[in-house]
């Protein structure tokens, strides 16, 4: 849904590790904040940053596609069933919506909005290679970096395979649009080749990776490695301190 979009704004120019630090720090910090207004202040600041980076138009649709149905569900569930509900804001016959629950729902929604926006910003302005190169330069194992990249590529890869398998089984007369029973049968015949094919492919891929120096010892080169200067270093420390401060306030 969200992938890298080339650009040269100030967010694109920042080191991937800096952006990851801020996304992680803010996402963790909002879960330590007790009040909805605090969380939504963070959301507003992130939204302003997004706008300043010229990326608002790209993020509005995917963000709302997730937040809107989630927000409605939260309002209904929290408004109806939150045990702290004492103040009724709306009554529909026997059904009463409580204010406290809705406020709690707004708090949860703000936390989700923060996580979505910050990580969407990271994905939109950072290539997967920049991210893994940045992490490797900070001492993270290349195997962990590969796991991130492979996970990102896994979904489109499986989609491609599943389409091929589906076409192949339909060509042998399998009805995938018939009754429920036929669909269950179709699912089984899709899953088998998908798993077998993925296993065969992973075996070849494991060999291909080894043949391309995946386990090679010694220094590696990272073409996607970006500059990690004073500004980035300061920003990463600030992100860490922000989280620690929020944690301190929570504990105290």
């Amino acid at each position: 849904m969200i992938g890298y979009a080339p650009g040269d704004g100030f967010l694109h120019r920042r080191n991937a590790v800096t952006k990851l630090s801020w996304a992680a720090s803010l996402s963790a910090t909002v879960f330590l904040m007790p009040e909805a207004w605090m969380v939504w202040t963070v959301v507003a600041l992130v939204a302003l940053t997004t706008a300043a980076g010229g990326l608002a138009r790209r993020l509005i649709r995917p963000t709302w596609t997730i937040l809107l149905p989630f927000g409605i569900s939260l309002a209904v569930l929290q408004g109806l069933f939150n045990p702290d509900n004492t103040t009724t804001v709306l009554s529909l016959g026997p059904v009463a919506f409580g204010l406290e629950g809705i406020v709690h729902g707004v708090l949860i929604l703000g936390r989700l909005a923060t996580v979505l926006l910050t990580f969407f910003l990271l994905l939109l302005t950072t290539t997967p290679k920049q991210l893994t190169a940045g992490l490797a330069a900070r001492g993270v194992s290349p195997r962990f970096g590969y796991a991130i990249l492979a996970a990102i590529e896994f979904v489109p890869d499986m989609q491609r395979r599943s389409q091929a398998v589906l076409a192949s089984q339909q060509a042998r007369g399998l009805d995938v649009k018939g009754s429920l029973g036929q669909r269950v049968k179709a699912f089984a015949s899709l899953l088998g080749p998908l798993i077998t094919g993925a296993l065969i492919a992973s075996d070849t891929r494991a060999m291909a990776l080894e043949a391309r120096g995946f386990s090679a010892r010694g220094e590696r080169t990272h073409l996607a490695l970006e500059r990690y200067g004073t500004v980035d270093r300061t920003a990463v420390w600030t992100a860490g301190l922000l989280f620690l401060a929020a944690l301190g306030l929570k504990v105290l």
Partner: peptide
């Protein structure tokens, strides 16, 4: 096999 030997780590 052409596609299976891709590393799966590059875009």
């Amino acid at each position: 096999s052409p596609h299976d030997q891709l590393t799966g780590a590059n875009t």
